[in-house]
Design a protein around this nucleic acid. Structure first.
Lengths: 124, 124
DNA sequence: GCTTGACTTAGAGCGCGCTCGAAGTTCTAG
DNA sequence: CTAGAACTTCGAGCGCGCTCTAAGTCAAGC
């Protein structure tokens, strides 16, 4: 199997610790990782791609519960594409509203900074 | 004191539970709230404005630790404006990069959705 | 063959941000 | 005056997402 990585190598590639990789598998964020005859995990490039997707979903605020549901659907195969689409579409809306909220907050922060600057100039 | 609110009223106005309001005071996110002679809290409109600011900072991902530092500076008065400005400016950068990251993830999600749609059409 | 380090599992522990419960005091409506 | 709702403090508990330890097995270089 070309390019199958040990857990340490997978950790290095993804920036996710080996502990956390095992944890992800344990809780069902990943399908069982294939094993060498020794029992040691061997991560495939598909596994790495899946991890990158998880990282993005998580960084955009998707809770583990929902990533898990998504993973479960993925494992069940092509028949679940409509449900997976629905999960992603719901998340798309969440992300869009997060962006909108952050932009409002950003405007407030900038306003506050400008006020501080005005105060400082007045005091000087 | 016109407009001084009980904790229940402050909770209703801000959408923060009474339990959480007490918690915020306890951990120093708020200066000690003024009290009726009975010992019951009375929230001023300044308190409410401060809570709205906290809500926005928190919603934009500022950890309580940092909001606490910001609150501490605020209590120490006008001399701390440069430090407060620095805290906000650092947070501004954080928020801007969050927005940038979310936008990238949003693009990925949209791409995945489009792929699912293509699969569905092919299967139909 | 032996050492050293990476790997395995199971399960405990942690930091964050609340959230709730207990036990007692105070306010308010009738 | 009284019942019951709202308030008080203190401290325990919880859900999340890891993070780490212990005790043991396996792999790679000398």
């Amino acid at each position: 199997m070309t390019g199958a990585l040990t857990i340490a190598e997978a950790a290095e590639h993804t920036g996710i610790t080996a502990h956390t990789l095992r944890y992800y598998e344990r809780i069902g964020l990943m399908a069982p990782i294939s094993r060498a005859h020794s029992g040691h995990r061997r991560y495939s490039s598909d596994d790495l791609r899946w991890l990158e997707l998880l990282k993005r979903l998580q960084a955009s605020g998707m809770p583990i519960r929902r990533m898990r549901e998504f993973a479960r659907l993925h494992r069940r195969g092509d028949g679940t594409i409509p449900q997976r689409r629905a999960v992603l579409d719901a998340h798309r809306e969440d992300v869009e509203s997060s962006i909108a909220e952050l932009k409002k907050t950003l405007a407030l922060i900038k306003k506050k900074i400008a006020l501080y600057d005005a105060d400082e100039r007045a005091a000087a």
